[in-house]
Simulated scan of single mutants.
Amino acid sequence: MLREKVICVGVALLLGCILAFLRIPAGWLLGGLLTGIGYGLFIKRLAFEGWPFRIVLALVGVNVGFMMQTEIFQLIAQYFVPLLLSLTLTLAAGVGIGWLMNHWTNLDPLTAYFCCVPGGASEVIALSGDYGADNRVVAAFHTARITFFVLTIPFLAGFFYPDELQGKSAGFALEGMELSVLAGLFTAILVTILLFRLWKVPAGTLFYGIFTGFIISEWVFAGSASLPSYIGGIGQALIGVMVGIRFDRPTFFKLKDIGKPSAVLLAIYFLFSLTLAAIFEWMTGLPYMTSLLSTVPAGAAEMSSTAMALHLEPTLVASLHIIRVIALFIFLPFCINLLKRAAEQGN
């Protein structure tokens, strides 16, 4: 099993490196994602859940933290009202799309709703079983949604918004790294893992990674240190392969059992995300692709990695996603209680 994982990860890194060298938008991320999808569908699914995935999340978070500037806090405060509106619309869309799934399929209301909860996929899948939903179906739909979004958005950026990426799509470059910076990177990852073991919160690994990376970069290195681009690329490729490999044959057949409604609902989700990004762009003045990455309900780590790959404000994107996921889990019990009452009255 370990040998197969090493081969799979090696292929992902190699393909990601090649795509980055060819200046394909988000080449590292797409290389990992395509490798994971191919391996999961045609060979076998490998389990990267648990601490391997946490370590990769920590790497991505620390990388974002090293890029972070103190001005980001002013930006987050500046975008409070647009963020609040986007959160409200996203929660409402999750409920609405869940209602459609419940009426278009034979899924029970709780399973249908958990399938459409906008974000925090790993936490939502784990919670769905505790509330009595079918977490196999929930996992299948969340996997399909995140895989589709991560696969589509870089192509959307590259083909329809090339001006926003002009001069930003860097190819592969082998840069040097000082031993002190390497030690700081490993220290930040270890501290991140320790913090998550002590205090588990939604999107906690990414949040702790950003926080720790920022502290070490700003106060230990006085803002003078930066990580080579290939460190971020490796993190993106690893995120890609670990997400892509979840889209395996059982996931495909589970979606096939649901039928056409799953594809239609996925399309509705995507169209909603495009519309929400346009509203966020109008309210903030941010570029459209940055707005899309900041608001699309496709996973904080995945969208942070995509933003980092496309050089589109990864610290802002990561921060807004973390706020969204935390707010989601604050309101989630309230939404579920309302849904349970509605289901009981319907029966």
Rank of each mutant, 00 (worst) to 15 (best):
I245F: 05
T251D: 10
L238W: 08
K254C: 14
R249H: 11
A263V: 04
P228T: 07
F247Q: 08
I245H: 04
D248K: 01
A263S: 08
K256T: 07
G240L: 11
S226Y: 09
G232E: 01
T251V: 12
G232S: 00
L227N: 10
K256C: 06
K254I: 12
S224P: 04
S229E: 15
I258A: 00
K254Q: 10
L255C: 10
K260I: 15
G223S: 12
D257W: 11
V264Y: 07
A263P: 09
Y230P: 00
S262K: 01
K256M: 09
I258Y: 05
D257G: 10
G233N: 02
A237C: 08
G233Y: 03
I245T: 03
P261H: 08
V243F: 14
Q236S: 15
I231E: 05
I239G: 05
V264N: 09
P261R: 02
K254S: 12
L238T: 07
I258K: 08
L227Y: 13
G223F: 06
L227S: 08
D248V: 03
P250C: 03
I245D: 02
Y230D: 01
F252V: 14
G223R: 14
I231P: 13
F252N: 13
S226D: 13
P250I: 05
G233Q: 02
I245G: 06
T251P: 10
K254L: 14
R249F: 06
S229M: 13
D248R: 01
F253D: 13
I245S: 03
V241G: 02
S224Q: 12
G235Q: 07
G223L: 09
P261T: 00
F252C: 15
K256R: 15
G235V: 01
A237K: 05
K260E: 11
I234S: 02
T251Y: 07
K256E: 09
R249S: 07
M242E: 03
Y230F: 11
K254V: 08
F252M: 15
G259Q: 02
Y230A: 03
G259Y: 12
